[in-house]
């Protein structure tokens, strides 16, 4: 089967600094792919390129659209690219303030994509927002509160609802659980795992936390200095790491 998204030889440099070098990966529906590595290893640059927000210096990203056509991301015009980003894709950011409209109520945050698609019935938008808030375990009576009044965990869950409301096929997540308390993190991980399974999403999750990668992902790519040094089944890479760097990474984790 053709992957939903595939990247070939993705390269991005900032002057002499290599952010990404020759990265290949692919992902299809129902799969969770974790990209792990230290900060500065190029994970977030890679994610930005996959999201179409950053043009690679070299290499290509192909996406299979809803009509089954495989398209090169670089050949899709900005209007369609933005439309895809609002409907077919989701992007859950580490900093909720970048992924949410902080001055807009929770309901408005969830409803924005629907209104962007032309939904013009307030009652329908409201009902849909309530349904999604419920699915991400945010109480219905918080629908008119802005995210500034939400805790860190709630903000991330709101981001997820805001992204999933248009039934996207691909969701990119950049360190969605970092900075959260452990118990809050667990709840979020459970939610991401459940929704991605139920909805058959393709998820690319960038994390520096190997435990997050182990719990959520089927496959893993370990990055170092802009390159993927090891990739494979998540449990295999973590339990029987072959690459020297992966071994270092795995052995550096504090056991709970």
């Amino acid at each position: 089967m053709t992957p939903l998204l595939s990247a070939h030889g993705l390269t991005k440099t900032y002057g002499p600094r290599i952010a990404c070098a020759g990265v290949d990966l692919d992902i299809t529906e129902g799969e969770v792919l974790a990209i792990v590595g230290e900060s500065g290893s190029g994970k977030s640059t890679l994610l930005s390129m996959l999201a179409g927000e950053l043009a690679p210096d070299a290499g290509e990203i192909r996406y299979r659209d809803r009509e089954g056509r495989v398209r090169a991301l670089g050949a899709i015009g900005p209007a369609e690219l933005r439309s895809l980003a609002r409907t077919d894709w989701g992007f859950v950011r580490q900093d909720a303030a970048q992924g949410l409209r902080m001055a807009v109520s929770a309901g408005g945050n969830v409803g924005e994509r629907l209104m962007g698609l032309g939904e013009r019935h307030y009652g329908n938008i409201r009902a849909c927002a309530l349904d999604w808030l419920d699915r991400v375990e945010i109480a219905a009576d918080r629908i008119d509160d802005p995210p500034t009044r939400f805790s860190g965990g709630m903000r991330q869950r709101l981001q997820i609802a805001r992204n999933l409301v248009t039934a996207p096929r691909l969701v990119l997540m950049d360190e969605p659980t970092s900075g959260l308390d452990v118990s809050v993190q667990a709840r979020l991980l459970d939610l991401i795992r459940r929704l991605s399974g139920e909805l058959g999403l393709a998820v690319v999750i960038v994390t520096h936390d190997l435990a997050v990668a182990r719990l959520l992902s089927h496959r893993i790519a370990v990055m170092r200095a802009g390159r993927v040094v090891e990739t494979g089944l998540t449990d295999q890479v973590l339990d029987d790491p072959a690459d020297a760097y992966t071994q270092l990474l795995v052995s550096s984790v504090l056991a709970a």
Partner: peptide, 9 residues
């Protein structure tokens, strides 16, 4: 056993 399951290479 782990190799059979694909957990070890």
């Amino acid at each position: 056993l782990r190799m059979a399951y694909g957990n070890y290479r």
